[in-house]
Design a protein around this nucleic acid. Structure first.
Lengths: 230, 230
DNA sequence: TCGATTTTGAGAACGCGTTCACAAACTCTT
DNA sequence: AAGAGTTTGTGAACGCGTTCTCAAAATCGA
């Protein structure tokens, strides 16, 4: 059964630049769900099927996909492989992205060995640290370089994404070094917020805060139990 | 459904329970900013000062704080220590929270040694794994237990929060075990979504997706450079 | 060919969160 | 004591994202 890719879109249609942030954040989830379907040998799926796999509302899924174009077929659904490719292309996963990790303490080391990256087009290309004891050692098959060599490494390997995995007080220094080296996208694991110039994207992952949010809700659950009788 | 908890000072105000999720997620950020101010020896601050420290809009900060109560003084600002305590109390950081980490691979090990937890009232109380080679070994000063012993450990130590740091295919099994053991809050680092019964909170941190989102924007920047002449 | 059925794509309504704008409340100076 | 200056707390406007809903487009069976 061949799925018609409902004709070509308009040649000069809106460049469709500007997918909502919330949608962008979910596209990788859909991609993962589609890959799961591919592994199950499923060739076509409805928005209901895919939404169930991805854990979202079917209407939301369709709205999200509609921002990319019309890749489904009414009355039929989506061709799994075709849609998978379209999303991959949209989020730039048809190419590999080299990243540099700054700070190879416990977290940085764990990230350098993280299995989940390679299958999603992420390749840890370099490790950097400031500690003399760490520089020159090999972690996950990569030799740790000095922070001074960052710019050269970034230029040579065409690295566009940097990961900050240092303690909080080093974060701004590292961010400055990354920006100076030409990095324009930063993932910050340090418990500190960093200032960067316009044009540089920073995403922050704060492990403590995630747990603190859970603790708030946990406290609230406990409070309901004990206070309700009041 | 609505939780009535009479506050000691509000006579006929709204139940006041039910702080918006977006606000809850920012309270730990404010708390960190306030602690930074305390270390600088600053006793009072305006919403402008604190907002700058926390990296948010002053109006948003005030709106957030207004959900907790009126802890500021017009024309003056906020007492740093007092506000710090009020936020800490609100998000349950006046007590320590014990957590169990399931999966002591690279990521789980790194989390067990993470310095940022202890200062925020998070204590890693137990480590669990399924691998016979890991069970019984000591990591960050904690002996790794078997998954079968999870329920006993959770009960004994009164652990309320569990962290999943396993590969994706083990995540659901682990989540089921955590729920069976009485855990009601889960932080999931595995690249898979887990199903849990009502009443159990799950937060998900997906390292690959964070990088994929950055890669999307990175790709877009590159596209603008080459396509757009603006 | 035609009607019944399935499913997408998108307009519209809705809700939540952010930002604006300002009165109220406080301090400080004269 | 009173006016000028500050800053909070909050109602209102706004914008983004989610959800509802349904016409349009496709398949299938007779």
């Amino acid at each position: 059964m061949t799925i018609l890719r409902s004709s070509h879109r308009l040649p000069a249609a809106t460049p469709e630049r500007g997918i909502p942030d919330a949608t962008v954040a979910r596209l990788p989830v859909y991609l993962r769900a589609l890959n799961a379907l591919i592994e199950q040998g499923i060739g076509t799926c409805s928005s209901n099927d895919l939404a169930a796999q991805a854990g979202v509302n079917p209407a939301k899924l369709r709205k999200d996909l509609s921002h990319l174009g019309s890749y489904g077929t009414r009355g039929v659904g989506y061709d799994v492989e075709y849609l998978s490719y379209q999303i991959a292309r949209e989020i730039g996963q048809t190419q590999d992205w080299d990243v540099v990790i700054v700070g190879v303490g416990n977290l940085g080391s764990a990230l350098s060995a993280y299995q989940g990256f390679s299958t999603r087009g992420i390749r840890v290309a370099a490790l950097v640290d400031t500690s003399p004891e760490r520089i020159g050692t090999e972690i996950s098959g990569i030799t740790v370089s000095a922070l001074e060599d960052l710019a050269a490494i970034v230029a040579e390997r065409e690295i566009a994404i940097g990961i900050i995995a240092t303690p909080g007080d080093a974060a701004q220094t590292v961010a400055d070094a990354l920006v100076a080296a030409g990095i324009t996208s930063i993932l910050n694991f340090a418990p500190a917020l960093v200032q960067v110039p316009d044009g540089v994207d920073v995403r922050k992952v704060d492990l403590s805060i995630e747990l603190q949010i859970l603790a708030y809700h946990e406290q609230r659950k406990a409070g309901i139990d004990t206070v309700d009788a009041e």
